[in-house]
Design a binder for these strands. Sequence first.
DNA 1: CCAGCATATGACCTCGGTCTTATATAGCAC
DNA 2: GTGCTATATAAGACCGAGGTCATATGCTGG
Lengths: 131, 131
Amino acid sequence: MLEGMHAFDVLGDPVRRRILELLAEGERTAGEVTSVIRAEFGISQPAVSQHLRVLREHGFATVRPEGTRRLYAVDPGPLREVDAWLERYRGFWSQPLDALATELARGARERRLAERRAEDEADGTGQERTA
Amino acid sequence: MLEGMHAFDVLGDPVRRRILELLAEGERTAGEVTSVIRAEFGISQPAVSQHLRVLREHGFATVRPEGTRRLYAVDPGPLREVDAWLERYRGFWSQPLDALATELARGARERRLAERRAEDEADGTGQERTA
DNA sequence: CCAGCATATGACCTCGGTCTTATATAGCAC
DNA sequence: GTGCTATATAAGACCGAGGTCATATGCTGG
């Protein structure tokens, strides 16, 4: 129902893409998201809530309760995976300079991740994935 | 049925993603694609043909007839759009160096496109977009 | 022209994702 | 506590994407 979904399936829905765009501008409460989506797509509150759930359960968004509200924010994990998948095709439109830039970025990213991993092992705060 | 489909919908299907990966390695005949996909996913020839159609009609692939075969190749257009959509989220995992690299690439790309546009206007060969 | 291979299309069926309505949960104000 | 608001879940209906089999089209070699 939802576990069989791949990252691209999640992004396949225009409502979910729009929600992500909203969250990209900063944290939003479920209610704020709902009213925008409701206005733009004409769907019900439960429908929006279900989309938020899909985003949550596939790691595209995190939630933080604040009183009676729930604050949603972008979790970039899966988007990075998409970005990585695209890597294979960048050569089709990238000229040498682009490729260099991409390599630079990739290298920097990986170096940084390696450092973080090292730190995590050092301080040993067993951080949970938000799953 | 297919016109309402967005690029991400096209990429949502694992068979189509796999086909694109095959094509990324170089031109393939429909038959070659079919036998690989058939082996890996256990679906019929018409099913593969339909996926190829979706890829064609959404601009992810181009076809070139050669005798009785049809040679498919990657058309990067829509993938670039996906890449562009991701731009909005790169900030979530990019540190300054990455951002610089991305900017470099983007600038180079756009300069190149501007040049091509200038050339096209100059020589006036009204090149069609592949739709 | 006919046979045969390569590929595409048509008709139909099934299944899962997304919608709706109704209802549950949870925090806050009084 | 009660009642109000914010959000999530349940149950069911519906629709379209993607599968199948059967068949059409198109090129080639004899």
